[in-house]
């Protein structure tokens, strides 16, 4: 393709978008809203998935000891735990260590500690890492039977619920994506149809002077792609600021929630939205041109 031709296409596209100012605006807005919903959904999905994976990797049993347990009894329990089949690692957490951990987690809200007074409410405990999630179900009740053990807990249920949730999200997501994509496609192809209609005389003359179908198609395709791309940019900007803002707020209050950091997540989501928006724009134009070009 010649440079002068590309130049011509770009000018035509620009003129056309301006001429259909209102419809162009409406298309960009529709694309933006659809992609915004799509993007938000994607963020929720990716985060839930990440959370489930994170929790699963933490297949550990927490064993809380009674306060009456002596150092000797603690050592004996630790010994027994270490010898159990499937146990990879046993970490002893003293009352003092548990308190320290809690202090760290509180961050700048240390004043909450003062209400505790001198009392340390945390029990002695063991954290046991096991080689597989299945093993946990068998081990946990056994551990509960050991002397001076208050309770033995594991987070498996939470993990299972989360995986179920991601499954539902994935299924609902696919339906939502298809629905949104069709709506966007419809809007863009309608806009381009109006453009084509407004320029039908021009298209007919182009055919008479020997323009190839692709020469006629390009400006319209570019128009659709531009509308899709602009919509995607708007959606991306919203998503970026919403997620960054959300992340800040959540870090302040629910610090332990393992949310995905903005980079590279936002980069991926933005690229996805831009490609999706542009692609939908091109497809929408192509659809509305198909019928029209048969002169």
């Amino acid at each position: 393709m010649r440079f002068s031709t590309m130049d011509y296409f770009v000018k035509e596209t620009y003129k056309s978008i301006r001429r259909n100012g209102f419809m162009s605006f409406a298309s960009i807005s529709t694309v933006a809203v659809s992609l915004l919903v799509l993007g938000m959904f994607l963020m929720i999905f990716l985060n839930t998935n990440n959370l489930a994976q994170y929790l699963e990797s933490q297949v550990q049993v927490s064993v809380y000891m009674q306060d009456s347990a002596t150092a000797k009894e603690l050592a004996s329990v630790k010994d027994k735990l270490t010898k159990m089949p499937g146990v990879v690692k046993v970490t002893q957490v003293s009352k003092q260590q548990a308190l320290e951990r809690f202090k760290k987690r509180l961050g700048d809200q240390q004043q909450l500690l003062s209400s505790l007074g001198k009392e340390n409410p945390f029990p002695n405990s063991f954290e046991i890492q096991v080689d597989s999630p299945e093993r946990i179900k068998v081990l946990t009740p056994q551990i509960g039977q050991l002397p001076k053990v208050e309770t033995a807990k594991f987070g498996q249920e939470v993990v299972e619920h989360l995986f179920q949730l991601t499954k539902i999200l994935r299924f609902g997501g696919i339906i939502l994506v298809v629905f949104l994509a069709m709506a966007t496609l419809f809007i863009i192809s309608n806009t381009i149809r109006l453009t084509v209609f407004a320029r039908r005389k021009e298209v007919i003359i182009m055919k008479y002077v020997g323009a190839t179908d692709w020469f006629i198609r390009w400006p319209f395709l570019l128009e659709g792609m531009t509308l899709g791309f602009c919509g995607a940019v708007v959606a991306s900007l919203f998503i970026n600021s919403i997620y960054s803002g959300l992340l800040e707020r959540i870090h302040a209050t629910l610090a332990f929630l393992p949310l995905l950091p903005t980079y590279p997540l936002l980069l991926y989501v933005d690229v996805f939205l831009l490609v999706a928006g542009t692609g939908i724009g091109a497809l929408g134009s192509y659809i509305s041109l198909r019928k029209f070009l048969q002169v």
Binding site: S4, I205, M206, F215
Partner: peptide
């Protein structure tokens, strides 16, 4: 090809209307 109703593009100048036929076949500027 020439028609009874001229078939010019109203939103383009005389020059652009004629140049159009050459742009379509990708002639150099």
């Amino acid at each position: 090809i020439i028609f009874q109703d001229y078939r010019l593009l109203p939103d383009r100048t005389v020059f652009e209307n004629v140049a159009f036929a050459m742009q379509v076949i990708e002639a150099p500027h």
